[in-house]
Simulated assay, not measured.
Amino acid sequence: MKKEITRLDVGSVAMMYGAILATIGLVIGLFVAAFGSLFGSLINSEQSGMFVGGGIFMAILFPIMYGVLGLIAGALVAVIYNFLAGRIGGVKVYVRD
């Protein structure tokens, strides 16, 4: 059976996209923190703590930054989809009962 998605709820799309990107940001932030700690321990200087602290800061900042940008992008995509779906038709999805 073929059905058509004619509208998207802007709030739910924005929240879901924000949550997805926040999760991706957390993974990337953890990698940055791990590599920052690794390279910070290999450097013998007074600034080696900057790598460790910067990595931990990125592990906190990336999920927040990605989540906010995802929230904005998700809302924008849903608004554009709703505008265009009314004019050219929505996405057709095949479902089984």
Rank of each mutant, 00 (worst) to 15 (best):
A78Y: 00
T6H: 07
Y81S: 05
A85D: 08
Y94V: 15
G36M: 04
M50D: 13
G55C: 05
R96A: 14
E46T: 04
G40R: 04
Y94H: 13
S41D: 07
F39E: 12
V27R: 07
E46A: 05
M65E: 09
Y17H: 09
D9S: 15
I43K: 07
F57L: 14
Y94M: 15
A78H: 00
E46Q: 04
L8S: 08
I56F: 10
I5E: 11
A73G: 02
A22K: 01
A14K: 02
I20H: 02
F39M: 15
G29Q: 03
G11H: 11
F62N: 11
N82P: 01
L30G: 12
E46D: 07
A59L: 04
G53W: 10
V13A: 10
S45I: 07
A59R: 00
S37R: 09
G67V: 06
V95P: 01
S37W: 09
M58D: 02
R87Q: 13
A59M: 13
A59K: 00
S41T: 07
G86H: 01
L8K: 08
I60F: 14
I56P: 00
G70F: 00
I5A: 08
G74K: 00
Q47L: 07
V79D: 03
G40Q: 11
A33V: 03
G70Y: 01
S41E: 08
I88L: 08
V79F: 02
I80R: 04
I20F: 09
I20Q: 04
F35E: 14
D9L: 09
G36W: 00
